[in-house]
């Protein structure tokens, strides 16, 4: 949600990118000396840089030497390939993104009103969450009506409330399974997954499970003096809840594993056929490096990095909420 701003900044940087594409290739330098030889600003950016008279002419000479080293016969082929691969794999932010602290560009006012950029302006989410919450709460209320309020009239089980406990466990399981399923199910539309996560996850599971009722039950148990029962009930709820949620997320991964595997293979095949370097990667223009499109394809396939989709926010679930943005 909050990364729309940085996303915009990224687009901005991409737009400024091609300016740097024509820069001389100081690439395959294993010790990173090319960085110090870069002509842009030899000023005291970092204290590690030696304060020798690093004039611009000197820097250019070093850069040319490095370049000759790359294009000449200095290195054996596999070493060159390895260094080049390392160069291609390392990120090269250009433009505004290359700054120490990349600027964060605020959203345009009109974009704040659009559901695509602002979840709080998403009318359909409100509807889905309201309906889900109503269904979840109604189910919990029915469960609560159909079960005795307390497992037993006396003793340890007095503090144990089966309806709340059961509702919490079922909701934990369902929510964990849904979260891991939607995080894996890349074949579903992003919007569908988002609405599913909000309607079923936040609405139904959130409405079905409750912490406040559990706390009220706890304080009632304290009032009647059932300290041990209160403690056992709370701990059992939390620990069994974690176990059930762990099982649910494992099951969600298992359910999607087969299809995710085949989708990944298809994606790798697509990458092999139309390979292109990632944004910001400088491809050497020197023909003597003999970099054909097929060898570039194998390089790109080895990175396991899908094509960047700069038009929209990347489809990654939030690690905490599992919400797919």
């Amino acid at each position: 949600m909050t990364d729309h701003e940085s996303d915009d900044a990224g687009n901005l940087a991409d737009g400024a990118g091609p300016v740097h594409l024509g820069a001389p290739v100081t690439s395959a330098d294993p010790d990173g000396q090319a960085a110090s030889a870069a002509p842009a600003s030899p000023a005291a950016e970092d204290g590690l840089h030696s304060p020798s008279p690093a004039t611009l002419a000197h820097d250019e000479r070093v850069a040319r030497e490095v370049e000759q080293d790359v294009t000449g016969t200095g290195w054996p082929d596999d070493q060159l390939d390895d260094a080049l691969r390392r160069e291609l794999l390392s990120p090269h932010p250009t433009g505004a993104a290359a700054a120490r602290k990349p600027p964060s560009v605020p959203l345009a006012p009109l974009k704040r009103m659009q559901a695509r950029f602002n979840p709080l302006a998403d009318f359909l989410s409100y509807v889905v969450i309201f309906l889900g919450g109503a269904v979840g709460t109604g189910l919990r209320y029915l469960l609560w009506l159909s079960m005795p309020a307390s497992a037993s009239g006396h003793g340890l089980l007095l503090a144990f409330h089966p309806a709340t406990f059961l509702a919490n466990m079922i909701a934990c399981f369902l929510f964990a399974m849904l979260t891991s399923y939607t995080a894996q199910a890349i074949w579903m539309k992003k919007r569908t997954r988002q609405l599913m996560g909000r309607g079923i996850g936040m609405g139904i599971c959130g409405g079905f499970s409750t912490l406040s009722a559990m706390m009220v039950e706890d304080i009632t148990a304290l009032h009647t003096g059932g300290y041990l029962g209160f403690f056992l009930y709370t701990m059992l709820s939390f620990i069994l809840g974690i176990a059930v949620a762990w099982f649910g997320s494992w099951l969600g991964v298992r359910l999607t594993a087969k299809r995710v595997g085949s989708e990944n293979v298809a994606e790798a095949l697509r990458n092999l056929q139309h390979a292109k370097p990632a944004i910001g990667v400088r491809v050497p223009v020197d023909p003597s490096t003999q970099l054909t499109s097929s060898s570039l394809g194998s390089l790109a396939a080895r990175t396991d990095d899908p094509d960047p989709d700069t038009d929209e926010i990347p489809v990654v679930p939030d690690p905490m909420t599992g919400e797919v943005k």
Partner: peptide, 20 residues
């Protein structure tokens, strides 16, 4: 309590955040 706070508070999300 059963309606509004039941929908407002959540046990499942907290547990799943612990698991993640």
């Amino acid at each position: 309590v059963a309606g509004f706070l039941g929908g407002f508070s959540t046990f499942s999300t907290a547990i799943n955040e612990m698991v993640s």
